[in-house]
Computed example of a mutant assay.
Amino acid sequence: MFNYTFHWKQALQRLPQMLDGALVTLEVAVASMVLGILLAILLTGCRLSGSRILSGFAATWVEIARNTPALFQIYMAHFGLGSFGIHLSPFTSLLIGITFNNAGYLAENFRGALKAIPDTQIRAGRSLGMTAVQAFRYIVMPQMLRIAFLPMSNQMVWAILMTSLGVTVGMNTDLYGVTQDLNALTFRTFELFTIAAVIFYAITKITNLLSRLIAARLFRY
């Protein structure tokens, strides 16, 4: 029969430590998104460069990122590179794995966004005396980011949730890792992980809300 005794007070006493872990979770997610966006722009340029080597490299990155588990990518950063004598901290391995994943998904989003922009935009910029790079920077890229903005916010949510995989490589400073350690100390599994789930839920909902507010502010026309 159900005879579990809840101890919410004991679990809530650990809330400050869990919130500290949530800050680390956000740190990893935000850093992986910034790096992922920069890499995705480069990958998109490679795919559209006309160079077989660059296009093949970008396509391979995207295929691996989109068709293998994120856990595999984190493992390769931590244990795979470790096999070659490159030993990374759990934080760095987690960041590299999530960044790799973000870059692959965002590159495909950017490529799709570019296809939605007429080629005449570049020609119009060139007719005004712009170079191809200037036309891309000032005309095409703002439109591309506008089209891809909401998918980018979804990827940010995914990055936040992916941080929980860090525990598999010894990460214990993020929200999930802190919760796991506290559970080992207190054995209040249900209460602690319920609180962690609520924090994750709150972070992702706030992220979605902020992204919609930003989109409404930046892309009013």
Rank of each mutant, 00 (worst) to 15 (best):
L12C: 05
Q13N: 03
Q13C: 00
R14F: 13
Q17K: 14
M18R: 05
M18D: 05
G21T: 07
A22G: 08
L23N: 01
T25D: 09
V28W: 09
A31S: 13
A31W: 03
S32A: 13
V34E: 03
I41W: 15
C46Q: 02
R52V: 15
L54D: 06
S55N: 10
A58R: 04
A58M: 02
A65V: 07
T68F: 12
A70L: 14
F72E: 04
S83A: 14
I86M: 11
T92Y: 04
L95Y: 12
I98E: 04
A103N: 08
G104R: 02
G104P: 05
L106P: 04
N109F: 14
R111C: 10
A116L: 08
P118W: 11
P118M: 12
D119T: 15
D119H: 15
R123F: 14
S127E: 11
T131W: 03
Q134F: 08
R137E: 09
R137V: 14
I139N: 06
L150D: 00
M152I: 14
S153N: 09
W158I: 05
I160H: 02
V169P: 02
V169W: 08
G170E: 04
T173Y: 09
Y176A: 15
G177M: 00
Q180S: 14
N183I: 01
N183Q: 13
N183T: 13
F187V: 01
V198R: 02
I206Q: 05
T207K: 06
S211P: 09
R212C: 07
A215W: 00
A216P: 00
